[in-house]
Design a protein around this nucleic acid. Sequence first.
DNA 1: GATGAATGAGGGTTCATTCAT
DNA 2: TATGAATGAACCCTCATTCAT
Lengths: 214, 214, 214, 214
Amino acid sequence: MNIKTADEKQQKQALIAETALKMFEENDFYDISINAIAQRSHVAKGTVFNYFKTKENIFMHLLLVGYQEFFLQTLNQLQQAKLTTTDELKSFLLTNTKDLIENHLTLIKLNALRGPVLEGKASREETIEGRKKLYEVHEQLAQFIHDSFPSIDVKTANKIFIIQSSIASGLINLSNLDSFNQEPIPGNMDDFKVSILNDSMETFDFYLTGLLGK
Amino acid sequence: MNIKTADEKQQKQALIAETALKMFEENDFYDISINAIAQRSHVAKGTVFNYFKTKENIFMHLLLVGYQEFFLQTLNQLQQAKLTTTDELKSFLLTNTKDLIENHLTLIKLNALRGPVLEGKASREETIEGRKKLYEVHEQLAQFIHDSFPSIDVKTANKIFIIQSSIASGLINLSNLDSFNQEPIPGNMDDFKVSILNDSMETFDFYLTGLLGK
Amino acid sequence: MNIKTADEKQQKQALIAETALKMFEENDFYDISINAIAQRSHVAKGTVFNYFKTKENIFMHLLLVGYQEFFLQTLNQLQQAKLTTTDELKSFLLTNTKDLIENHLTLIKLNALRGPVLEGKASREETIEGRKKLYEVHEQLAQFIHDSFPSIDVKTANKIFIIQSSIASGLINLSNLDSFNQEPIPGNMDDFKVSILNDSMETFDFYLTGLLGK
Amino acid sequence: MNIKTADEKQQKQALIAETALKMFEENDFYDISINAIAQRSHVAKGTVFNYFKTKENIFMHLLLVGYQEFFLQTLNQLQQAKLTTTDELKSFLLTNTKDLIENHLTLIKLNALRGPVLEGKASREETIEGRKKLYEVHEQLAQFIHDSFPSIDVKTANKIFIIQSSIASGLINLSNLDSFNQEPIPGNMDDFKVSILNDSMETFDFYLTGLLGK
DNA sequence: GATGAATGAGGGTTCATTCAT
DNA sequence: TATGAATGAACCCTCATTCAT
């Protein structure tokens, strides 16, 4: 138990990270204590700090690794999809957005934390390293799109995914205006109702149409 | 003197709120202490609590009142603009978005706080009351658009403004990916660069085009 | 209770400081917790931090203020003593040393903490301010000696008090070599025995003789 | 290989001890972690604890063994010096003090830790054993002086070395009063300036003169 | 109404020490 | 014997909130 392989170490780190992720699905960053993460991971508080230097590092890790995985998966799917028309691409991207919102909502929530909260105390080196890896994957993805659709330049392809997250992230922020703490506000506020999924997809759809041409 | 008129009371409340707003332009919610707000308002800490039951109430107030004012102003401008074509409307809305981003960025930042942070401790009653007032203004604005452009139904008009804020709010979250704590990350990360203003306007432009028809 | 005069505030600060001093008579810096200081002062933990920004500030305060008082008292006594011969001066200084050791041992112990421990986290500004005040008093004392004994220049007079503390401080460090945690070590270790008081006085006596001439 | 000879064991213990000594030259006890000692020794953390029961034991060991070596060396030098007059003795002792301060400052710093910090958690048995060995060497040294200078009794000879360390130790504590965290305090504080070496030697010189007679 | 002193729960983090391998 | 992962007690400190005046 005392000498761990790199793999075993990664597993424990992943255990802690996944616990934090689960908790972040239900609570906000400031309502999640290291103590609670440790307990729910069945690990001592000190152990958490053996794997992450600060609390912020845990969540920065979730953000960076989570997005890397998401974009890698997207790249894979794209490669297998063998799209030929921009309509197919649009359709693919909308499905991809659905996946992002339905299965990776925490990523989108983490975006809001990154600048104002996480960067302040996350390790500069690790963050930059992770950010660069992420940039690479992002570029690969964009490059692949450009290769498949030469009319879409790499820069534009990159932006597509940034806007994708932006839209979803923004709609989370504007959701639930017709309720307070999950409880519906009495009276009619129907026009404040937002469906994160539907509205994201509609907005992104319009964006893609505008960007890629009718 | 120790019995204040309703007006005097409102003035002091406004003073505190404005101070908090100024501070929120420069710092994040969790980096702004009640103490600091009190000091910068030249008021005692206890006085702050005489006007706002909790810290979260202050910022919920800023959000609600700020948006009310913004939408009222928008309504005014709209009434004076006497638009006739949807192109003019689009143009108006884009200019309005520019105003929102350039002069009311705090509103957009506050959106990200609302659900996860503010609602937890903000007064339910006051929030609901404010939310209803806001809804009313929002509806008036939407109604006016509908009246001017019967093809745009009220629900759609409402949504326009929600998407407007969503897009800007989301782009804030995705900005500065090419730097860490304001310092640029060495190496090329150009494709991560985001211009909150330009990209918001472009995205909103495409959205409006899609929504309102070519 | 809510608006304290400067005087009342100083009293509470003094209360906390004195509690810390008492505890420092019995325990080492690292064995004294803020919690314990608060409890023994019948005050909440937070209150301690209302009066001292850091734990180190408390003890730096004790050191600076303690020495200021000691030197002021020494100056007073000196003024009243109206010494005329250097033998009288020597005698006075030895009695003064006795007082320092018997009634202000904590000051001497605090000297050992200052550089390596306190300066790291004590407020730079407050410390420098206190240090300057102390320097002033020290200079006054030295000046008075010089005025009374023109053959002793001010620099030399200053050094007298620095050596006085050094000797006492050093002898504390070398004391109790014949015991371990207060319990005597079995067997004869008589030649390791040190009397802080007697040996300080003897050493200081020899020092003064050497310095001031036979 | 996993059964080490006594000599091999001592070598590893010495390696760890020497590393700790080096680190203590640059940092304070509380700023040196077992982790850091282990790393700089190229040894695992657990290994450190195989050789020293507690952190305090390491430094107590440094103190005891360091002084033993210093006094043995002093004894050797004394035996070779073949002094005949007390003036020569004084001169020898001052040179010896210079050596202590210039090459063994850590010993003097360790004195300040011994009572308040180390004894609390150092092994009683090992400390007492080391202290007795030290006492023996100390006595030999004193005895040799007495044999060479019958007018100096053994007790007095012993005390000479205790005062030697006391003076140096005390002056360390009172040094750097004219700076804060290595940075000079602005303004004139010349009379607070201390030269550990010069002032130790002067003080010790006067002490010896007083003790041994003019 | 205004004040600001007092509160204390709660936070993140450190680090000597243990012990299974 | 060597290892280093796991532990968890203990620490200092923050800050929204209360309430006596």
